[in-house]
Design a protein around this nucleic acid. Structure first.
Lengths: 109, 109
DNA sequence: GAAAAACATAGCCATATGGCTAACAATTGT
DNA sequence: ACAATTGTTAGCCATATGGCTATGTTTTTC
């Protein structure tokens, strides 16, 4: 639930990690499942998974010798919320600018 | 308009840069205006502004001896769109899971 | 119980990032 | 003309990032 936007945005700033996110939206998967579609050594890939997990975007549990990852929706929502808020403010500013423009066009009373 | 999510998310992964974005939503500002509210040497701060600009989140033009920056809304929208799409897929998955659960509860026909 | 499977850890490497100081423009104000 | 303002560039430093190989560890499976 945390709101550390730094690590959330940072985690999403990499195509490998975004691909993992997209894949996990379809349902949980093991490390090797996820790894199979990426041309990269496993330890390198593991670093990406760890970064996703420490950003809270993903959780995992070890069952037997394999680790199953699943997505955690809340942190992405936090990022989306921040962006949506900025857009709202931006649109509000455009509205004010337009109001100002109209006021300037109106003849003096 | 470009869709390079890497640099967009990466640019937003820093609190200094997010603060600049928030400030610029209120209207254009010069480098020193923006810098005044950050306890950081000017060259360090400039690096942040450059990163924002090369991610396309901000544009600037030099007028006289000062540079005026203004925000560029489109790239943030691209990031928001990606997040919104993921959320949509996630919610779609939840719907399918619920449908499945209901199907399992229903007695056999 | 030995081998295979599925991670995990250690450690190396090159480049990127985020901070700094010092020195260099280029405008503008006196 | 000179000084002050406002950026800009160069270069240093420490740490982070993203890749690798080699080696461990823990379950399965045969």
């Amino acid at each position: 639930m945390a709101n550390h936007l730094d690590s959330i945005f940072s985690a999403m700033a990499d195509p490998t990690r975004r691909a993992v996110i997209e894949r996990l939206l379809d349902g949980p998967a093991s490390v090797s499942d996820l790894h199979s579609s990426h041309d990269m050594a496993l330890p390198s890939f593991l670093k990406h998974l760890n970064k996703l997990e420490s950003a809270g975007l993903v959780r995992s549990e070890k069952t037997g010798r394999s680790r199953i990852l699943h997505i955690e929706a809340a942190p992405m929502a936090a990022a989306e919320d921040w962006l949506a808020l900025q857009r709202k403010l931006w649109e509000g500013r455009l509205d004010r600018l337009q109001a100002l423009a109209e006021a300037l066009e109106r003849p003096k009373t």
